[in-house]
Design a protein around this nucleic acid. Structure first.
Lengths: 221, 221
DNA sequence: TTAATAGTGTCTATGAGACATTATGCA
DNA sequence: TGCATAATGTCTCATAGACACTATTAA
């Protein structure tokens, strides 16, 4: 599952299935692990094959496994779901098994009934998987530097803040956000350059060496 | 993987393998998922079959999946690891595939080189799985009410504190711990009864309805 | 000048760590 | 009485939320 922030909204990359079951419905990209392939490698490979998106730099992590009997109508399938985070990538290209591939804003998908997507539900139990992945992303912004995986370097603190706002779906206090990010050693480091904005130009930053945040940046209640 | 607190130490239930590969070495209990069985059910069933421990009430959750090629010398095996938390259960009974089953304190296991157990390493990549499960337990004590899964009801705040101290491996401030637990609505609720101790008798508590902690109880640095 | 965003300073409430003190049982 | 643990109170410091204010660009 590839998550990114587009147009200020947290979005997930889906493919329209060409084949049964669930032909014509949208689904997460995925496929079968090869005989001597590590799980992480399989996740990366399937993402490239089905969507044309090859993400080198950013972040890929295992989400969890789904194995309820009947979740695939053909036969017992256990899926090991992965989540990837990236800045907006090149336009996705549908692979052989898919008619189309495109991004959907998760807050359109995750309203009840869960996983309605252009009028039809997501294939399999993929609505649940998307919900779990989104919650993982939201939680990880609190106590890790994951937000930097959603922006292109170099970035401004405004861009980083808009990542938090898109993923959490709420506005943040500009001044307090700045204080917390800059007060965490290794979260970001200044490049010295500035970028133009609609107002005063903003300092540009790179990712720092830190991966976890102490103290965390908690979601407002 | 069953974790519990025994004699003030966080401990994991292991079985001594009867068969190759790794015959005679200690390993996590486990086995194969049946055709129409949910993953959670398989985890519970294998725990009973291999160790005689049937845990009804407490807590069982998926940890993560391990699928590196070569992690089983026979053939490609993908393991979906589960962690269970319980108060000290009945004495374990080794199943057919195991010679013995008993608890090991995790801080004996998790010193370098990782996973030495009675002089020999743990089977497969189980030392890594134990390390991941222990870290899951440590993290979950911070922001959930998981600690109550390690004690028998009713319990005193002293007993609950000793769970934290065993899992985190450090002493906690008695007065501050009490303030934080009692200040979190729904963490515990008093029964009205008291239990004798070596000093002043202690109030007894039940688990409350809360599952997450706001604010979290963070590990001291 | 105005609009828009970046960036700084400060007040206050809250929660955590540290520590002192009291309470209640038993040997 | 002394010891051990439970339970309460309080002081201080760090951090978060809220808000006021200044800085720097473009239209």
């Amino acid at each position: 599952m590839l998550l990114t922030v587009r147009h200020g909204r947290l979005s997930v990359l889906l493919v329209e299935r060409r084949n049964e079951p669930f032909a014509g419905q949208w689904a997460l990209p995925g496929g079968f692990v090869e005989a001597d392939e590590d799980l992480d490698d399989a996740a990366r490979r399937e993402l490239v094959e089905e969507t044309g998106v090859s993400l080198e730099p950013n972040h890929l992590e295992q989400l969890r496994s789904y194995g309820a009997p009947g979740r695939d109508p053909r036969r017992r399938i256990v899926t090991i779901a992965y989540v990837a985070f990236t800045d907006v990538p090149e336009a996705p290209v549908a692979g052989d098994d898919a008619r189309r591939a495109r991004f959907f804003a998760v807050d359109d998908l995750l309203v009840e009934p869960l996983g309605q997507c252009e009028g039809t539900p997501l294939a399999f139990d993929h609505a649940r998987i998307v919900a779990d992945g989104v919650e993982r992303a939201r939680a990880k912004l609190e106590y890790t530097t994951l937000a930097t995986a959603f922006v292109d370097e170099p970035f401004t603190l405004g861009e980083l803040r808009r990542v938090y706002e898109a993923v959490w779906g709420m506005p943040l206090h500009e001044a307090n956000f700045r204080r917390k990010v800059l007060g965490t050693p290794g979260f970001v480091e200044p490049t010295g350059a500035t970028a133009p904005t609609d107002g005063r130009p903003a300092q540009l930053y790179r990712k720092g060496g830190a991966t976890s945040l102490h103290p965390p940046i908690l979601r407002p209640t």
